[in-house]
């Protein structure tokens, strides 16, 4: 039942959606979240009239820019380390950090039948496997942890090629130069099921992707609204459909 209060709230919501109130949200977004963030930003924009400007990149590169005063209101990191560091270093607003998605690692290849991906990895019948830089990208670190757990690190080491971000790791596979890639499920969620093998999550540390409001956006109500929107049911449904989990 929609009562008088409901209608009143609706009116406020509609009023706040008027262009006169339109504000700009500048968000730095981890490369693996590119597709979802674009969709969520469009939905948020349609619902509120606030413009969201997204800058994509490797989390490490984005964070380096933020420490030097890059004009971002919010950071959607690929890990939970950079957001914590941001708060510790006074660049993030305390109490605004939350997990917006938990990433899933996937083995991907357009060349192999990956129904049993572990067997393909163990057979080792490939020349190059692409991963993201394990020192900077959480998916790269997860990939290394997983290879370690399977005892494949030594055999795979000379065949590992590193992309500066998870997007580049995928580009190496798409170009055909690397036969296999350990990438984010979200990047390959549209591919045929036989080309993807979902790495069982117990084989790598959880990839918690955290968001945080940055100091530059502390007084930007639209930025807070965007972060709230990311935690809402509508956004969560989109995020889950895109290949992430959320507990």
């Amino acid at each position: 039942m929609v009562g008088a209060r409901g209608i009143g709230a609706l009116a406020v919501l509609l009023l706040s959606a008027l262009p006169a109130h339109a504000a700009l949200v500048r968000a730095a977004v981890a490369a693996n979240f590119t597709k979802v963030a674009t969709e969520l930003a469009a939905r948020f924009q349609a619902a509120t009239g606030n413009e969201v400007r997204l800058s994509f990149g490797a989390t490490g590169a984005l964070y380096a820019q933020i420490t030097q005063g890059a004009p971002f209101d919010a950071l959607l990191s690929a890990d939970d380390r950079r957001t914590a560091t941001a708060i510790a270093e006074g660049l993030g607003v305390p109490g605004t950090e939350f997990t917006y998605a938990v990433g899933r690692l996937a083995l991907y290849s357009p060349l192999f039948d990956l129904t049993d991906g572990e067997a393909v990895l163990r057979a080792g019948d490939f020349q190059h496997i692409a991963i993201a830089d394990p020192k900077t990208a959480p998916y790269g670190a997860a990939a290394m942890a997983m290879l370690e757990k399977f005892g494949l690190t030594e055999g795979a080491a000379p065949r590992i090629v590193t992309g500066e971000s998870i997007s580049q790791a995928l580009a190496f596979v798409e170009s055909g130069s690397a036969e296999l890639g350990l990438v984010a499920l979200s990047q390959v969620v549209d591919k045929p099921a036989t080309q993807i093998w979902l790495v069982p999550p117990e084989n790598y540390p959880a990839i918690r992707q955290n968001a945080v409001l940055l100091k530059a956006g502390e007084t930007n109500e639209a930025a807070r609204a965007f972060l709230d929107y990311l935690r809402g049911d509508a956004a969560i449904a989109v995020i889950k459909a895109a290949g992430y989990t959320l507990e």
């Binding site: 020349q127 190059h128 090629v161 190496f172 170009s175 055909g176 130069s177 690397a178 036969e179």
Partner: peptide, 14 residues
């Protein structure tokens, strides 16, 4: 890739 296949490799990238 064609050149690389002469010595059994798949690609000259990397």
């Amino acid at each position: 890739g064609a050149l690389a296949s002469l010595w059994g490799a798949r690609t000259l990238a990397f």
